[in-house]
Nucleic acid binder design. Structure first.
Length: 596
RNA sequence: GGUCGCGUAGCUCAGCUGGAUAGAGCAGCAGCCUUCUAAGCUGCGGGUCAUUGGUUCGAAUCCAAUCGCGAUCACCA
């Protein structure tokens, strides 16, 4: 790409002129700001000392040398210590001619031999998915797509948390209060049905605590001794012992949940190469802990519980096995990590998990290293921020949790209303219209969430998320549909996108040039998004591109242009833009319609 | 209390490992459809980049302190 070549040229020039040995990372070469003339700008302040010249002199010297040695550097101008470099229009058009027809533009051309396992979603099977999971799923899927676009060999995995005390809570509540209710009998989606009993458990449990406190027990003791919690704990022990009836119940209720999850995953458009179940991996963790004990890396306390001492690393002691021998979250995560490493030998393991677990992953990495797993260095916690609502954080107690299925339904509903209001679907069949509503709804939702830097806490404002104007998914989808409309017009007149470039640089007007330059940036954006595991970079780039195209579209005729060569160039340019919009949105998991 | 993270326009967010006069969208106001999709385009107003100090040619960006917000430090996951 042009910027890379230019950077090499600049490095060579500066090194020769001032007898230095800099590398490309030592200099600041960036895109020239809009208000100045030029394409790339070099800040020369860093080497004025070595050069022993004024910034202006320095910049001028470098500029002259660049023009002399680099064919595509047409001219330059100097403002203070800034050297603005002008790349020839011919060079931009060369780039355009080479790439405008490339359907996979932006994606790596060569496959890397690096393997990356991306874990995301990781739901518990005791309640349905909510808004927080939505961010997780969208991030995990998009990051995986971005890594694939960078040529990585990506394995998308889901670790389903299908066992543990929380699962027993909903099971127990169903036994006690369920009266045999099933998804079939009630018409409730399986995950929602099970979630209902998880809530029921909590309600009855709380009531028991209140009762015990009133009869004189301390709150702490009441929480530990309420009959329901004791029964749930008993159920967990039975489960770990493989008690038949318990296992049967567990299998039945989990199967309801899986059916419900599958539906939601499908609607969100996410998928997995491999699904791990904690019930199948937690014993591996126990083995590991045993080995750690044997090796003397871990220690056992008097009550029989097993711990890892991390005080030497500035952390505390961490529990790995309870006194009764049952395992905790960390135990199974150790086992799963080991299993996963053995299966795929990945160079990196990315965990898409909320930032409230930062501590957990520090510990996980440390304990694995203590257990002798040097590959634990490759564990990367993609720690994303919480999703907040205008009223504050989501709280199940206050009933402010935004359910994933409800959210999607609401988005589709709004998309339908908007589309009908605008009267755009007149020539759509009902299936086609349904498909469109779905695509717009998911485009809006996905874009709204992915455009924010993953690390940051984000605000989910329902009213804004269904706004389809401005920096939104539908705005970008609309731009794509518009281009497709132009393409149809062209086809009607028997005009096709060129198979190769046949026109010259006189085509390149101001707006066209800035569009071409923006298109040129796309592969670098995909790379950076891959390095930073940040879909937001892709999202913001596509928005800029769509905005730029809409201005071009507004200012210029395409099919109405009389000059044949110019018309052809603008058509090709539109086609290229559509490709980049499509390729970029695909990385976010968003479909772009041809009509809307 | 210890540790970690975050404070940019009324609101939601960009601003890459320091670079030119801090940018978008929404909301508000004013314009643009006999012309390829107006879910669009154009213009206007709106900022002590939490505060204070430091590092240097240059700081929203790096460092320190202070204030405010959040997370975490469970035999929860």
């Amino acid at each position: 790409m042009i910027d890379k070549i230019l950077a090499d040229q600049v490095v060579a020039t500066v090194n020769e002129l001032y007898n230095l040995s800099l590398s490309a990372s030592d200099l600041s070469l960036s895109k020239t700001r809009k208000e100045f003339e030029g394409d790339y700008t070099l800040v020369v302040f860093p080497f004025v000392k070595a050069a022993r010249k004024s910034p202006e002199q320095c910049a001028t010297e470098i500029g002259q040398a660049l023009v002399a040695r680099t064919p595509f550097v047409e001219s330059f101008n100097v403002i203070k210590g800034f050297l603005n470099i002008v790349v020839s229009s011919t060079e931009w058009l060369n780039f355009f001619g080479q790439k405008f027809n490339a359907s996979a533009f932006g994606y790596a051309e060569t496959k890397s031999d690096e393997t990356i396992v991306v874990e995301y979603s990781s739901p518990n099977t005791n309640k349905p998915l909510h808004l927080g999971h939505v961010r997780n799923n969208l991030l995990g899927f998009s990051v995986s797509e971005i890594l694939k676009a960078n040529g990585k060999n990506v394995v998308m995995v889901n670790l389903v948390n299908d066992r543990g005390i929380h699962i027993c809570k909903s099971m127990l509540a169903w036994v006690k209060f369920g009266e045999g209710e099933t998804p079939e009998s009630s018409g409730l989606k399986g995950d929602h049905l099970v979630g209902k009993y998880y809530v029921a458990f909590d309600k009855h449990y709380k009531a028991e605590i209140v009762g015990l406190v009133e009869s004189g027990m301390k709150k702490e003791d009441a929480e530990k001794n309420a009959p329901l919690i004791l029964e749930a704990q008993e159920m967990l022990r039975k489960w770990e012992q493989g008690d038949d009836a318990t296992i049967q119940l567990w299998k039945m209720m989990n199967s309801w949940v899986y059916k419900g999850f599958d539906e939601t995953y499908q609607r969100m458009g996410v998928s997995f190469d491999k699904i791990y179940h904690e019930s199948e991996t937690y014993l591996l963790g126990k083995d590991l802990v045993q080995k750690g004990l044997d090796a003397g890396v871990l220690f056992r306390k008097e009550d029989g519980s097993v711990w890892c001492d991390l005080t030497g690393d500035g952390l505390d002691e961490k529990l790995l096995l309870r006194a009764d021998g049952t395992s905790v979250y960390m135990t199974q995560d150790l086992g799963t990590a080991m299993l996963r490493f053995d299966e795929y030998k990945p160079n990196k393991m990315v965990y898409v998990v909320g930032n409230e677990q930062d501590y957990h992953f520090n510990v996980l990495r440390l304990v694995l290293k203590k257990l002798g797993a040097s590959w634990a260095e490759g564990i990367y916690h993609l720690s994303y921020g919480m999703v907040e609502l205008p009223q504050g954080k989501m709280k199940s107690r206050e009933g402010t949790v935004v359910d994933a299925d409800d959210l999607i339904d609401g988005m589709i509903q709004t998309a339908r209303e908007m589309t009908e209001q605008l009267g755009k679907l007149d020539d759509f069949g009902s299936e086609e219209a349904k498909r469109l509503h779905y695509n717009i709804a998911m485009g809006a939702l996905k874009y709204f969430i992915l455009k924010v830097d993953p690390k940051k806490t984000m605000m989910f404002n329902p009213a804004e998320s269904i706004d389809f104007n401005g920096n939104t998914g539908p705005f970008i989808q609309y731009t794509h549909a518009r281009i497709c409309s132009v393409m149809r017009k062209a086809t009607e007149r028997g005009i096709k996108v060129s198979s190769e470039l046949t026109y010259g640089m006189e085509m390149l007007g101001e707006k066209e040039k800035s569009l071409v330059k923006l298109l040129h940036d796309f592969p670098a954006v995909v790379q950076e998004a891959g390095n930073n595991l940040s879909p937001a970079l892709v999202a913001n780039y596509i928005f800029d591109l769509a905005k730029e195209y809409n201005q071009f579209y507004h200012d210029h005729h395409i099919m109405r242009e009389e000059n044949e060569a110019i018309r052809q160039f603008r058509l090709d340019l539109s086609f290229f833009t559509a490709t980049v919009i499509r390729n970029g949105m695909k990385l976010l998991g968003i479909e772009v319609p041809e009509k809307m």
